[in-house]
Amino acid sequence: MPLYVALLVGAIMFGIGLYGALSQTNLVMIMMGVEVMLGGALVNLVAFWRFLHPTVYPGQTFFLIIMTVMALDMAVGFGVGTARFRARGSVEAEEAGELKG
């Protein structure tokens, strides 16, 4: 039962984050959406560790890796944001049409 509560919270957080990352126009807000999605992933990892395999620890190691990813996407994202802001004076996705692949 508690496992399902955690999985429910994780799934809803993932949905909210996906909506945010796709719908926001500002780079910083898009990154917030990604953070919310990764938060949902963290809930799932901790729940799987706690309720399925509490005595083996690679699950917690995986948690640390995801947390590293969360910090790194912020660092690199703000690096790109700073570069973009210096060059164009804005980090709006609507004004970055030339970055389309």
Partner: peptide, 25 residues
């Protein structure tokens, strides 16, 4: 106004959440 492609994002969010829920349950 700070959002774009609202319908698509809402649909993607709902589908993503329900896909995860389906697997979870």
């Amino acid at each position: 106004e700070m959002t774009h492609q609202k319908r698509l994002s809402q649909a993607a969010g709902v589908i993503g959440a329900f896909a995860a829920l389906g697997i979870a349950f």
